[in-house]
Design a protein around this nucleic acid. Structure first.
Lengths: 109, 109
DNA sequence: TCAATCTCTCAAAAGATGTTGAAATAAGGA
DNA sequence: TCCTTATTTCAACATCTTTTGAGAGATTGA
């Protein structure tokens, strides 16, 4: 992940609806969920959701595929880990020590 | 770090000048550096730098102290690790595996 | 083909953010 | 006190982002 991609990713995550969409899609797992279900979960209009989903997809944080009438969105996990990696390496220079419960798990991967 | 703080942090880091300021101040270490030196390093006007420094301070990513005529800014490392933690726990749910060289170091902390 | 469903696109309006340059504040030294 | 240095504040402007509602495109089943 380079600076430009990181800037895009941060911009994407700096918006409440979008941050929640990412969380929802991460929880939904690799299968993802249709745009309509995302909108329903957010309580937002279809055009609003479409706008934010496009934004997140442009930033590379989520991806989409058509399945019958629905368009299924899912999280792009490597993009999220890439962002974490960027923060740790390029930004924190190893000076930040996140105390994360899941840290041993993620580190063993 | 709660959602609101994370949103502020992401918004702060989504701007080129601000992202670079954070990197500069992380590299500068706990002693930090005066606003003027930050501005010179960025090649930006004083009011522009002041605007971005205030933004970062409001978000809690940097802090300031007066020292004689200068105002010294420095990185708030716990805020940065808090953001990394937020991304890993609240956002990634342990599904993202950042492959970071410094990972063992940070995990041992 | 027609109607229903799901989603996207578009343009207009509203809102938020970033930049500029001039003026104000704060501190230290002559 | 007056001058210099360091930084912030302010208002005006430009730009970017988000929301809204109406309409269009794609897909499926009758």
């Amino acid at each position: 992940m380079n600076e430009l991609q990181a800037l895009d990713a941060f911009a994407s995550l700096s918006q409440e609806t979008r941050l929640r969409i990412v969380r929802l899609l991460v929880m939904a797992g690799p299968d993802g969920m249709p745009a309509g279900a995302v909108g329903e979960a957010m309580g937002a209009s279809s055009s609003k959701i479409s706008f934010h989903l496009s934004h997140l997809e442009r930033a590379g944080l989520i991806q989409s595929r058509r399945e019958a009438r629905s368009i299924i969105y899912s999280a792009v996990y490597p993009a999220l880990s890439g962002l974490i990696e960027f923060l740790m390496k390029d930004c924190c220079q190893g000076r930040c020590d996140p105390a994360v419960d899941t840290c041993s798990e993620t580190c063993e991967a």
